[in-house]
Each structure stands twice: as C-alpha cells, then as structure tokens.
C-alpha cells in the first residue's frame, strides 16, 4: 500500500522588507520537494523572493471555540491604548 505525500503549509515573502505570509498548502514527499512545488504553485508570476515550508502537522493552532478565554482578557484593558488618557487640547502632538 503506498503512503500519501504529507501536507505542507507554504509561506512566501513577496519582497524584502515584508514578512512571510501564508499562501496556502500543498502535498510533497519532503521539505525539498515542497519548496520546489511551492515555487511552481504559488510563485508563477514572481510573487515571492523567499519561501518557507512547514509540515502542516507541526503547526499548533488555537481553537476558535476557546477565543473567549484566550482573547477576552485583552478586551477590558482600554488603558493599553493611547486614547484612554485625557490630555488638554493645547498638547498638540503626543
């Protein structure tokens, strides 16, 4: 019985100065082949200058059903934003 090629997540840096961004995924036997396939699948029109490949199973993702516990603590901390602070109008730039 043949084994299926694993799934890889593809991240591409569009140009220097920008971060790598998730572009999609593809199947490949190993990392090297994933890089070559990613070149053909996701950068046929010079969309990138650098590619990262990560095997999908190595990514740990948060569960959106736990978004409450995870992200709610930040919601009532308005004092982390500059607009929370009262300043007189005379202070123009701060």
């Amino acid at each position: 019985m043949s084994k299926n090629w694993p799934l890889w997540e593809i991240f591409v840096r569009s140009k220097n100065g920008l971060e790598h961004r998730h572009f999609g995924s593809l199947h490949a036997a190993d990392a090297e082949m994933a890089l070559v396939n990613a070149r053909d699948v996701y950068t046929r029109r010079s969309e990138g200058v650098s590619i990262w490949v990560v095997e999908s199973k190595d990514i740990t993702a948060s569960n959106p059903e736990h978004n409450g516990e995870l992200f709610e603590p930040a919601q009532d901390k308005v004092y982390r934003h500059p607009t929370f602070y009262d300043l007189p109008d005379e202070v123009k730039h701060m």
Binding site: S2, K3, W5, A29, D30, M33
Partner: peptide
Amino acid sequence: GAWVRDAAMAHAEKNE
C-alpha cells in the same frame, strides 16, 4: 504516476 509518487516517498523516508 503511482510509481513516481511511491519512489519519492521512499526516497524521503530513507533520507529521514
């Protein structure tokens, strides 16, 4: 194409 996919997988496993 099955033999190509199998060969690539076998090669990857051997390298690993």
